[in-house]
Computed example of a mutant assay.
Amino acid sequence: MQAPPMLVDSHCHLDFPDLAADLDDVVARARAAGIARMVTISTRVRGFDAVRAIAERFDDVFCSVGTHCHHAAEEDDVTTDDLVRLAEHPKVVAIGEAGLDYHYDFSPRAVQEASFRRHIEAARITKLPLVIHAREADADTAAILEQEMGQGPFPALLHCFTGGAELARRAVALGHYVSFSGVLTFKKTDELRAIAAELPADRILVETDSPYLAPGKWRGKRNEPGFIVETVRVLAAARGISPDAAAALTTENFFRLFSRVPRDLRAAS
């Protein structure tokens, strides 16, 4: 019998208190569900030590380093050099998450933009993918990505995508990737499923963004990496392919983008 395809959670927050209390069990359930790799995402550089410690604790967990746009004002002193230096750790496989959030505006927009551009420069230098948070900021996000790409290429991923088709199109035209979370499974996200159906197959990833945004059948509960199987199922239905095919293509895309993550953990150990 052929083994089921590997699954990957490209974006979770294993350091958040919601998951920290039973983290060993959360990781064990993910493994039992076929999740072979998880990337726990940094939201504060000042909290990076805790994120890195989790990645060091589990062979199949990796991490990023960066400042979420919500916290851009409190970490306005974090430099590109700081990000590049911290990214030297072998378990760091991405920069971010960083970007623009015009829904909450927890940090001034000019400060968000400056932080976003510093993270882009760090991604350009390290060649690690930039994990982008973009909420109600489609036009400015696309414009900044296009401007910065003109200064030199960098890999990037629009995470937990909830934007419009135009942002997705412009990002993919730059060679970037788009990741879908449990939001894809919600009843009132037909437009999002339409975008997921139309994007090039080699530009799509999946994630949980756990502990938030539990998909469909777990809606309202704490999310965790093992629940990604439901997002993959809905993505497959939207694209008219099998869940195994959706798992295979999103996993292949993950390894292409997150190139520092080893395909074979035994060989890397």
Rank of each mutant, 00 (worst) to 15 (best):
H133A: 09
Q112K: 11
S107W: 00
I95D: 12
V93L: 14
L100A: 04
P108M: 12
E121V: 04
V111I: 09
I95N: 09
E136L: 09
D101R: 06
R118I: 10
F106G: 11
A94S: 05
V111W: 02
R117W: 15
I120C: 00
K127W: 01
I120T: 10
L128Y: 09
R109I: 04
L100M: 12
A114D: 15
G96T: 03
G96H: 01
V93K: 14
L100G: 11
A122E: 04
T126H: 08
G96N: 02
V131E: 02
E121N: 01
V93F: 13
P129R: 08
R117E: 14
S115E: 05
Q112M: 03
E97S: 00
E97K: 07
I95A: 13
A110S: 11
L130S: 04
R135L: 11
A134R: 06
E136S: 06
R135E: 09
I132M: 07
A123S: 15
H119P: 02
S115R: 13
H103L: 11
V131I: 15
E97V: 01
A123M: 03
P108G: 04
A123P: 03
A122P: 03
A110N: 14
H133P: 14
A110Q: 11
G99E: 08
P129L: 07
V111Q: 12
F106W: 07
E121C: 03
E121Y: 00
I95K: 04
R109W: 06
L100S: 09
P108H: 12
R117A: 03
Q112W: 12
H133C: 13
D101I: 01
V111E: 11
R117Y: 13
Q112E: 13
R118G: 07
V93M: 14
A114W: 08
I132V: 15
H103F: 14
E113D: 14
Q112A: 11
R117V: 14
G96V: 00
G99N: 06
D105W: 01
A98S: 15
A114H: 12
E136F: 00
E113C: 12
H133Y: 05
H119R: 01
E136Y: 02
H119M: 02
E97P: 10
